[in-house]
Computed example of a mutant assay.
Amino acid sequence: MKSAFAAALAGAALVLAGPALAADPTGLWQTSTRSGQVEITKCGPDLCGRLVSSEGLKADPALKDVNNANPRLRDRALKGLTILTGFSGGPDAWTGGSIYNAEDGKTYSGTLTLDGTDTLKVKGCVIVPLCKTQTWTRLR
């Protein structure tokens, strides 16, 4: 009887822990363009993300941020560059953040929304409703 109760309690704990694990956006994500890979981590209380790889970085790991709107930042390396900053919230959506697009050198307001455990909707906006959403896939 005690072992059945313990097994039921352990099963309940796993069920309750499942959604918490599913709502964790940290990890390595494949972007939907240019074979980009972004590592999302906690940065203090918020989420941030850095560029790990892309088609361009595979061809030239020394690529610089040459399209940045700020001329003083054009000499910084793209590899390891923080492109997601300031996202807060949860458990399934994070808002209030910024997304830097190295292709055009501009920063956009953004939201991150988990759609299951391995799909992340990344929305960047010039101003609402002028937004674009990409679907990223979890690599790990």
Rank of each mutant, 00 (worst) to 15 (best):
S109L: 07
L84M: 09
G18C: 07
D115N: 14
K132D: 07
Q134V: 04
T135F: 03
E39L: 12
L73E: 15
G18L: 11
G116C: 08
C48K: 05
G116N: 04
G89K: 01
G56F: 01
L81C: 09
L21A: 08
A17P: 00
L112V: 08
T31Y: 03
T82H: 01
V52I: 15
L47M: 07
K42N: 08
L51D: 11
K58F: 00
D104G: 03
L84A: 08
S98Q: 12
G80V: 12
G89V: 03
G36T: 00
D118F: 07
W29N: 05
D104C: 00
I127V: 15
Y100H: 13
A59Q: 15
P25F: 04
P25W: 01
T41S: 04
F87K: 00
T107A: 13
A62K: 13
S35T: 06
G44V: 04
S35Y: 02
R74W: 14
R76P: 04
Q37C: 06
T135Y: 05
F87C: 01
S109A: 10
T31W: 01
W136S: 04
G27E: 06
V66L: 13
P129W: 11
V122Q: 06
K132S: 08
A69N: 12
Q134F: 00
W94D: 04
R74V: 15
T107H: 00
P19C: 02
Q30K: 15
T133I: 05
R72H: 12
A59I: 12
L112E: 03
C125Y: 03
L57M: 11
G56H: 01
D60H: 12
S109C: 05
E39C: 00
K58E: 14
V66H: 10
K42G: 00
A17H: 01
G49L: 06
G86Q: 06
D46R: 01
I40P: 08
L78N: 09
I99Q: 07
V122S: 02
D65K: 11
P25M: 02
L57Y: 11
T107W: 01
K58Q: 14
G49H: 09
L51F: 12
G86A: 09
G36P: 00
A22Q: 12
W136K: 05
